[in-house]
Design a protein around this nucleic acid. Structure first.
Lengths: 230, 230
DNA sequence: ACCTGAACACCGTTCAAGT
DNA sequence: ACCTGAACACCGTTCAAGT
């Protein structure tokens, strides 16, 4: 789906390939990356997908690295808003964390690519500002508020990275089942049973976020509860 | 440093290269990976390092993938013990988290490689058992204890992955300094100042661990405080 | 049993040449 | 302005041939 393109060839149509566009290249590349990851994006494969010579791509985007740069820039610019929901600051912070996780999960390869290109701060700025407002609403200021912002950001990004790694390698070899017989569980069969089951990363995430936020707000002044400002 | 090798060539020494050993190959490969990451481990480069033909390596290790397999297996087997320290379960759990982080940081490329090979569970088993004992000491059992184990593990692994990404891309382009002028900070100059400074990942980590553990143990029964069993 | 070079199918990238 | 094929220097891997 190249969308619209400017037709610059003068032969009045016919079977000739319509002129190649930079946007067309980016669309095709984005599609490949989204489906199979950055490693699957080869210049030759991309050319084949587009039906052009490899070297034409170089004319439009320079080289593979700047192609990836442009891709990341475009994706970051297209990320949606982050809107906190919930009745207490704690819930609203947790909702920001969940929204952030969803954004990152929708672009599974984005985080690593963004980091590699030093765009992290720009990418997270909206979420950070939402978190700042909620930290203020919870009565935290200065360094304490910054702590909340960064702890939540690291937790979310870290979780997404871990989840991505887990999904790429679904078959665990010794298998948690064999490892967590009753013997290793310090005499707690219920725990052994839970740990022998495959992890539900979503549950771990929500539980972690809840615990982290609770811990971060624990010693906060009791003023300014309820829905935040703005 | 090939260490000891069995001399199987019959020419009685001289300038001929001593027989190539599987261990020698693994040592050299481990060195390359530790210094420059798995991507820098090329069969040709490794052969050059060892002073042999590329194809000799194939005789000893099969192919690149099984070479990496063997490498990971060896590294995982060589990981040290995890010994909790501290006077309360909360502190002891935090100490396990810190020890785990240190182990992973000492082998910067290990996590991803281990995950890709499905060895995660085997690798984390010792830390998990330590965490189980401490969760029990804190009065948590069953699913609640499992929650602690998994939340801590995800937090640590996630943090290490984030840190690794950050270290690979030190130069952030818009720069946190420009982004966090007083305007964006919701009228909190102290916070703006903190966020404009480069992050200290170690501080974020210790703060996050402390908050997470506090949140996880919050509603725990007040029995069984003080140093754990074992 | 162990090592070798030649060869194959892949990469990204450059360059001179076409229209 | 835009596209092309040929060529270069890299990959991992296989194979027949050496000792």
């Amino acid at each position: 789906m190249p969308g619209k393109y400017v037709c610059t060839n003068m032969d009045g149509g016919g079977m000739a390939r319509p002129a190649l566009t930079r946007d067309e290249v980016l669309d095709s590349a984005a599609d490949l990356v989204k489906r199979h990851g950055p490693a699957a994006l080869t210049m030759r494969g991309l050319a084949a997908e587009l039906g052009t010579a490899v070297t034409s791509i170089y004319w439009h985007v320079g080289n593979r690295e700047s192609l990836l740069d442009a891709l990341v820039e475009r994706t970051v610019a297209d990320l949606g808003e982050i809107r906190p929901v919930g009745r207490t600051p704690a819930r609203r912070i947790a909702s920001v964390a969940r929204a952030l996780r969803r954004q990152l999960r929708d672009h599974p390869h984005l985080v690593a690519m963004v980091h590699e290109r030093g765009l992290t701060e720009r990418m997270f700025l909206p979420a950070q500002q939402a978190l700042v407002r909620e930290a203020h609403a919870a009565g935290l200021r200065g360094a304490r508020a910054a702590e909340v912002v960064r702890a939540v950001q690291f937790l979310v990004v870290g979780h997404v990275l871990v989840e991505r790694n887990r999904e790429r390698a679904p078959a665990q070899r010794p298998g948690e089942q064999e490892l967590w017989g009753a013997r290793t569980a310090d005499g707690d069969p219920a725990l052994a049973r839970t740990l022998a089951w495959p992890v539900d990363p979503e549950k771990v995430f929500t539980a972690s976020v809840k615990a982290l936020v609770a811990g971060l707000l624990e010693a906060a002044p009791e003023t300014a509860r309820g829905p935040g400002p703005s």
